[in-house]
Simulated assay, not measured.
Amino acid sequence: MAYIDDKLGRGEKIVHQGHQHIIVVAVKSIKWVGLFVVAFIAALWILTTNPTEEWQKTAKTVVELALALTCLIAFVKLFIDYLVWQAEEYLVTNERVIKIWGIINKNLSDSSLDKVNDVEMYQSMFGRLWGYGTIKILTGNETGANEYDYISKPNDFKKAMLDAKNGFFGDASDVALQERTMRTQPQPMPIPPQPRFYEERGAAVPRQQAQPPNYGYQNQPQPKAAPANPSQADIPTLITQLAILRDQGVLSEAEFQEKKNDLLRRM
């Protein structure tokens, strides 16, 4: 896991990662490179000599050890400068600008994008040729400005900052709002189980019988059974009750017409 992974907030993501230009290593290590070259050439020259006296041989050995130690120190210093350059990172997230430096003792400084007032970029002639420049971030903090020198591809770094500040990559509040909405959103009602059939005396019978549609007759009294020999005064009432049963789906249209004609013949 990278050092920055557990330093990011909820919903925060890295949108650009930059370093200082490799020329920084060359500038810082040029003296050590020169010392390494001089010591190496001097060691080769001494190795070609052939001293005759005993003290000359001893002096030659001491000089050779000193030159070898000088070459080793120069090489180690050059390697350390490279590690320092590699460990120094400039990150742009959708919330802030972060600078990380240090090999063993890690250091971190950041500037919130909300407090960034302006971003300035400066490139010298050699900076334009080699692709490096200086980024100056003007903030509302007490320090006033953060200046990053020798940034590789400074134009891409500045564009990433401006896009992040303008909300092009979103922000952490979007994630928080989404999680809060998911917690407060009502959960869907569970679907009731469908009636299952079970075997009863060899026949499939549903557990719950479906009720016939009412069609607006909820408040009307249910029709009573028709008497065996209705009087002429009861026949209109019976026909009305038959119509209700037809509308409720109890009687078909043919059954309704048959019973209706039967009652009319009795009038």
Rank of each mutant, 00 (worst) to 15 (best):
residue 3 Y to D: 15
residue 5 D to S: 15
residue 7 K to V: 05
residue 7 K to D: 06
residue 7 K to W: 09
residue 11 G to N: 01
residue 11 G to F: 00
residue 12 E to G: 06
residue 12 E to C: 03
residue 18 G to K: 08
residue 18 G to W: 07
residue 18 G to R: 13
residue 20 Q to E: 10
residue 21 H to E: 09
residue 23 I to R: 07
residue 23 I to V: 09
residue 23 I to F: 12
residue 24 V to A: 09
residue 24 V to K: 11
residue 28 K to C: 07
residue 28 K to L: 11
residue 29 S to E: 04
residue 30 I to G: 08
residue 30 I to E: 07
residue 31 K to C: 03
residue 31 K to N: 06
residue 32 W to A: 07
residue 33 V to A: 13
residue 37 V to K: 00
residue 40 F to K: 07
residue 42 A to G: 14
residue 49 T to Q: 05
residue 54 E to W: 07
residue 55 W to T: 08
residue 56 Q to T: 08
residue 57 K to I: 09
residue 60 K to N: 01
residue 61 T to V: 06
residue 61 T to I: 05
residue 62 V to R: 08
residue 63 V to R: 06
residue 65 L to Q: 14
residue 70 T to G: 08
residue 72 L to T: 03
residue 76 V to F: 06
residue 78 L to W: 13
residue 84 V to P: 00
residue 85 W to S: 13
residue 88 E to P: 00
residue 89 E to L: 15
residue 92 V to Q: 03
residue 95 E to T: 10
residue 95 E to Q: 12
residue 97 V to R: 00
residue 97 V to E: 04
residue 100 I to M: 08
residue 100 I to C: 03
residue 106 K to W: 02
residue 111 S to G: 09
residue 117 N to C: 10
residue 118 D to N: 10
residue 121 M to G: 06
residue 124 S to T: 04
residue 125 M to C: 12
residue 126 F to K: 15
residue 128 R to H: 04
residue 130 W to A: 12
residue 131 G to V: 01
residue 132 Y to Q: 04
residue 134 T to H: 02
residue 146 N to A: 11
residue 147 E to R: 13
residue 149 D to H: 14
residue 149 D to R: 15
residue 149 D to P: 11
residue 150 Y to R: 11
residue 158 K to V: 15
residue 160 A to G: 06
residue 161 M to F: 02
residue 161 M to V: 03
residue 166 N to W: 02
residue 166 N to F: 05
residue 166 N to A: 13
residue 167 G to V: 14
residue 168 F to N: 06
residue 171 D to R: 13
residue 174 D to I: 04
residue 178 Q to I: 05
residue 178 Q to D: 10
residue 179 E to G: 04
residue 180 R to Y: 10
residue 180 R to P: 09
residue 181 T to N: 13
residue 181 T to P: 11
residue 182 M to N: 14
residue 183 R to D: 12
residue 185 Q to F: 14
residue 188 P to Q: 07
residue 190 P to A: 14
residue 192 P to D: 02
residue 192 P to R: 00
residue 193 P to Y: 08
residue 194 Q to F: 15
residue 198 Y to R: 14
residue 199 E to P: 10
residue 201 R to P: 01
residue 203 A to W: 02
residue 208 Q to F: 05
residue 209 Q to R: 03
residue 209 Q to V: 09
residue 209 Q to W: 02
residue 214 N to S: 10
residue 214 N to H: 05
residue 216 G to L: 00
residue 216 G to F: 00
residue 220 Q to V: 13
residue 220 Q to P: 00
residue 221 P to E: 13
residue 225 A to V: 12
residue 225 A to Y: 01
residue 227 P to G: 06
residue 228 A to T: 14
residue 228 A to Y: 10
residue 232 Q to W: 11
residue 232 Q to S: 13
residue 234 D to N: 03
residue 237 T to H: 14
residue 239 I to S: 08
residue 244 I to N: 09
residue 248 Q to V: 02
residue 250 V to F: 03
residue 251 L to T: 03
residue 252 S to R: 01
residue 253 E to H: 05
residue 263 L to P: 02
residue 264 L to Q: 06
residue 265 R to W: 01
residue 266 R to V: 05
residue 267 M to W: 01
